[in-house]
């Protein structure tokens, strides 16, 4: 791509949405993600209504609400840290931005660690699914456990991808790529992270609280 030619064409554009391509694309992508999670959640929720008894029994045995509450707090705080990081770079405080991003990274990693503990330790533990020999009871018999692993699994994958992308953002931050006028990658990543956080709040509500 020859940036000069591209600039010439971009200078001659009809007024678009006023939102940059990157941000518009990110919002559209997130809309798509919303549908993906909405359908998964709605599917599990509809099945829950048919299996209220199973849901109640397995939920009692299969979740650790205290751990998950702590986890929820950590994830929400990490979202706050991202806002602080963006605020810091907008005011030109590069060191503060790096600090907030490191805190976010720690928050994301703790979340994943606690989540994996829950997967491994609780009654329908990780050792019971996915391996041909070990499939007994557990998720294979229970709508709650199946829904729990599917929903938290896909959410966890999104958090893990978010953490990997955050490492990329951090490398760029340490290379000094972000300035008060140019922090596009950070902002795009922030949108994604807020989305992941929001999905977790819904999952926490329907899997642990309700």
């Amino acid at each position: 791509m020859n940036p000069e030619i591209a600039r010439k064409f971009i200078a001659n554009q009809e007024t678009g949405t006023g939102v940059s391509n990157d941000k518009l694309g990110m919002w559209i992508f997130l809309a798509s993600e919303v549908i993906f999670f909405a359908v998964l959640i709605a599917g599990v929720f509809v099945l829950r209504l048919r299996n209220l008894e199973d849901w109640a029994i397995h939920k009692e045995a299969g979740t650790a609400t205290f751990l998950a509450t702590v986890n929820t707090f950590i994830l929400i705080m990490s979202s706050v840290f991202v806002v602080s990081a963006i605020d810091a770079i907008q005011r030109g405080k590069e060191q503060m931005m790096k600090l907030w991003l490191w805190l976010t990274l720690i928050g994301g990693c703790i979340f994943l660690f606690v989540q994996s503990l829950e997967w491994a330790e609780l009654e329908h533990g990780l050792h019971e699914i996915g391996l041909p020999a070990g499939i007994v009871g557990g998720a294979q018999e229970s709508i709650f456990a199946s829904g729990f692993y599917t929903l938290t699994g896909f959410h966890g994958t999104h958090v893990a991808i978010g953490v990997l992308l955050l490492i990329y953002v951090l490398i760029r931050a340490h290379r000094g790529d972000f300035t008060p006028r140019q922090y596009n990658a950070l902002e795009m990543w922030g949108l994604y992270w807020h989305f992941v956080d929001l999905v977790w709040i819904i999952l926490f509500t329907i899997l642990y609280l309700l």
């Binding site: 559209i28 992508f29 549908i35 359908v39 998964l40 599917g43 294979q140 018999e141 709508i143």
Partner: peptide, 23 residues
């Protein structure tokens, strides 16, 4: 953009059903 993720969710659930026995 708004329809395909629904298919993605559907095939995910069916894949879970066949591969892991999630009912």
């Amino acid at each position: 953009v708004l329809g395909t993720p629904s298919l993605a969710a559907a095939v995910t659930l069916q894949f879970m059903n066949i591969a892991f026995g999630f009912p």
